[in-house]
C-alpha cells in the first residue's frame, strides 16, 4: 500500500525545548494509524505541525508527494488533511446542519460571494444531512451546537472533518473525557467511517487503539520510540516501561 502522508526529520522547538524531535512518520493509505505515548510526548504538537497550526523548526511533510510544511492551515485543510480538536471546538449559536454546511462550503469559492444571498448555501443541505446521518446525528440536525451533549459534539466534530472529504483524517483524542458507553459508540463510529479513508488518531485508551489501529507509533519525549502493529508493540519491553505498563496497571 502506498504512503499518503509522511513526515521526515520533523522537529519543533519552543525556546530550546524540543517538543517534537526528528520524527519520521509514514501513514499508509487506507490504514488507521494511532499515535500513543505519555503526556508531553509531543503527539498534539505533531498534529499541529501536520495541519499547519504550527510551523516546523525543521523537516518535511508531504501529502501524496505535495509539500505541506510552511502552508497555512486553511490551505492544508483544502488539500486534504482534516482534523478534529482535542477540546470540542464548535460554534455554539449554529445548528449541527449549519456547521456541516459551513464545512462543505470551505472547499468552494462560495464563501467569498458577499453579494449573494446566504440561501445559496441550501445547495449543501442534502450532503450535510447525509454526513450527519453517517455520524448518527440526523435527528439533531436543527439543534444548536451549544445544546448538544458531549458525545454528540464529538460526533459533530467528526462530521465536520468528513465534510472536507479529506485524504487523511486526523482525530485528536476522539474519546477523551468520555464514559464507557460513549467510548463504545465512538469506536463503532470511527470503525464505520474509516472504510475507504485514512485515519491518524491520538489516543490514550489502549482498548480503543487495540480495536481500531493497524499501525501504532509510540512517542516519548518528542521522539518515536517504536512503531508497528499493536500486537507487537504491546510486548516491546521499551514500550511497557515507557507507557503501556502504567496503562495496564491502571486498567
Amino acid at each position: 500500500m502506498a504512503t499518503v502522508l509522511s513526515a521526515q526529520g520533523l522537529s519543533k522547538e519552543f525556546r530550546g525545548f524540543r517538543a517534537v524531535d526528528d520524527v519520521d512518520l509514514d501513514v499508509t493509505e487506507g490504514s488507521v494509524h494511532a499515535l500513543v505515548g505519555p503526556n508531553g510526548a509531543g503527539k498534539t504538537t505533531l498534529f499541529n505541525l501536520l495541519t499547519g497550526f504550527l510551523a516546523p523548526t525543521a523537516g518535511r511533510i508531504t501529502l501524496a508527494r505535495q509539500e505541506l510544511a510552511g502552508r497555512p492551515p486553511d490551505q492544508i485543510a483544502r488539500l486534504g488533511v482534516a482534523r478534529s480538536f482535542q477540546i470540542s471546538s464548535l460554534f455554539p449559536q449554529l445548528t449541527a446542519r449549519d456547521h456541516v454546511e459551513l464545512a462543505l462550503q470551505g472547499g468552494t469559492g462560495l464563501g467569498w460571494r458577499f453579494w449573494r444571498s446566504d440561501r445559496r448555501m441550501a445547495r449543501f443541505r442534502n450532503r450535510a444531512l447525509e454526513l450527519l446521518d453517517e455520524v448518527r446525528l440526523a435527528n439533531l440536525a436543527e439543534t444548536h451546537a451549544g445544546a448538544l451533549s458531549y458525545g454528540h459534539k464529538r460526533a459533530l466534530e467528526l462530521a465536520l472533518a468528513l465534510a472536507l472529504d479529506p485524504k487523511v483524517l486526523l482525530l485528536d483524542e476522539p474519546t477523551a473525557g468520555m464514559g464507557v458507553e460513549d467510548v463504545t459508540a465512538t469506536v463503532e463510529l470511527i470503525g464505520r467511517v474509516r472504510a475507504g479513508r485514512t485515519v491518524v488518531l491520538v489516543e490514550h485508551n489502549m482498548k480503543v487503539v487495540a480495536t481500531l489501529a493497524d499501525t501504532v507509533t509510540v512517542m516519548q519525549s518528542g521522539r518515536v520510540l517504536v512503531e508497528g502493529p499493536y500486537a507487537d508493540i504491546r510486548r516491546d519491553p521499551r514500550v511497557v516501561t515507557a507507557y503501556l505498563g502504567d496503562a495496564d496497571a491502571s486498567d
Partner: peptide, 13 residues
C-alpha cells in the same frame, strides 16, 4: 466566534 475552527474548515481567516 472561532477563528481556529474556521481555519481548520479551510477558510483563510
Amino acid at each position: 466566534d472561532n477563528p481556529a475552527r474556521a481555519r481548520a474548515l479551510g477558510y483563510p481567516v
